[in-house]
């Protein structure tokens, strides 16, 4: 017998996939990543916050410069991958 596929919600992107100058809203932070997720939360990343990639670093597009609400944060794609966003 066949199993009906579970409907998948619209796939949300990760912060590292957000194109430059596109605003996004944080939908989830991967708390399974332990200390790193806690560090992201402490510096201010939280669900429902607005983010926007302002710049990419000169070598290989690393790191990213992200506007988080009214602050600016530099982080690498490895860290940004823990943050799921939806495009606004």
């Amino acid at each position: 017998m066949s199993i009906e596929p579970i409907p998948v919600p619209t796939p949300s992107r990760h912060l590292c996939d957000l194109p430059k100058s596109t605003r996004g809203r944080i939908v989830a932070i991967d708390d399974g990543a332990g200390g790193l997720a806690a560090k992201l939360r402490e510096i201010g990343f939280a669900e429902n916050d607005e983010v926007e990639v302002l710049a990419f670093g000169p070598i290989g597009g690393r790191p990213l410069c992200v506007r988080l609400n009214e602050t600016m944060i530099a982080l690498r794609p490895e860290e940004a991958r823990l943050i799921s966003v939806e495009v606004l």
């Binding site: 790193l36 560090k39 992201l40 510096i43 790191p63 410069c65 602050t71 600016m72 944060i73 530099a74 982080l75 690498r76 490895e78 860290e79």
Partner: peptide
């Protein structure tokens, strides 16, 4: 090591 650094205005 990860990089998570605030950029001041």
């Amino acid at each position: 090591q990860p990089l998570i650094m605030e950029l001041p205005t």
